[in-house]
């Protein structure tokens, strides 16, 4: 897949359809993937990766990228295409300045997931259908994909792309996910249980803003949490409940706009 993507990206750079490519590259560690922009064939060869670690949703980066001259090529997993469409309905970027290629996704894993399984010294990853091979300095280790999937991928709602200019690989189907099982559980709780549940969930938040920063719905020019005039900007919390308010306010802000891409849960 990575090879096909690089080859197609080179073609599109070559024929002038786009002048840069939005993709992924590895950081210090192989599992430490970050979004990156590539402008030449050489850069693509040197840095572009696409593997089971490439969970990042690139659609949000289009807001910035489309402000530049020329067209940008972006690779979108099925779930990313939902964010892509949401951003479009909010007029957050210019569709004309994007060339979108839909790419398949069998579900992603992460360094944390593997480390929790006792893997260390990760140097690379390969996938083949249901099996995942992790390369480490201590040799290769095989896994069942379903055992190391990220939480959000376990309830993946769709393998079908809802927006693209072209596809690499086969398009999938909308899945019968179990996204609402947790909602059903919540509904079954008594109000007290539910309150306790949320307090405990929300108490995990240290207000690092990482969820907001990756969220494709959170693309405001000036976020209310950064605006001292909003009255809810970042400041030392007066009590533990005020700390929790951050998540509650954010939930209301993205309600109706969140596409369930799960980036926040990754962050």
């Amino acid at each position: 897949m990575q090879g096909m993507m690089i080859a197609r990206a080179k073609e599109l750079l070559q024929d002038g359809t786009v002048n840069r490519v939005l993709g992924w590259q590895a950081g210090e560690f192989a599992y430490d993937i970050t979004p990156a922009v590539f402008e030449t064939a050489e850069e693509l060869d040197a840095g572009f990766v696409y593997n089971a670690f490439c969970g990042n949703n690139l659609s949000k980066y289009l807001i910035k990228e489309t402000k530049k001259d020329g067209k940008v090529l972006v690779f979108l997993k099925p779930c990313d295409t939902y964010s892509f469409n949401q951003l479009l309905t909010e007029h957050r970027f210019d569709r004309e300045k994007v060339y979108a290629i839909g790419i398949p996704c069998e579900g992603k894993t992460s360094g944390e997931m593997l480390k929790a399984k006792g893997v260390s010294g990760i140097t690379g990853i390969d996938e083949d259908g249901d099996s995942i091979t992790v390369h480490t300095v201590y040799g290769d280790q095989g896994f069942n994909r379903s055992d190391v999937l990220e939480e959000r991928c376990l309830t993946c709602k769709s393998k079908k792309h809802v927006a693209y200019d072209e596809l690499i690989g086969e398009d999938g189907e909308v899945l019968d996910s179990h996204r609402f099982d947790m909602v059903a559980k919540l509904e079954a709780m008594t109000p007290d249980e539910r309150f306790a549940f949320w307090r405990s969930q929300l108490s995990k938040c240290i207000r690092c803003n990482a969820c907001r920063n990756v969220c494709p719905a959170c693309s405001c020019e000036k976020c209310v949490f950064d605006n001292p005039e909003s009255g809810i900007a970042q400041k030392a919390a007066a009590d533990s409940f005020e700390e929790n308010m951050f998540q509650i306010i954010r939930a209301f802000h993205v309600a109706g706009r969140c596409t369930d891409c799960g980036e926040c849960s990754r962050a």
């Binding site: 909010e90 957050r92 405001c220 020019e221």
Partner: peptide, 21 residues
């Protein structure tokens, strides 16, 4: 305008069609 995203959320709820872009 410095804070506006141009996202159309306001336009969609305005019952009087008062908002343009």
């Amino acid at each position: 305008e410095l804070m506006c995203n141009g996202c159309s959320s306001c336009e969609r709820v305005c019952p009087y069609g008062a908002i343009t872009y």
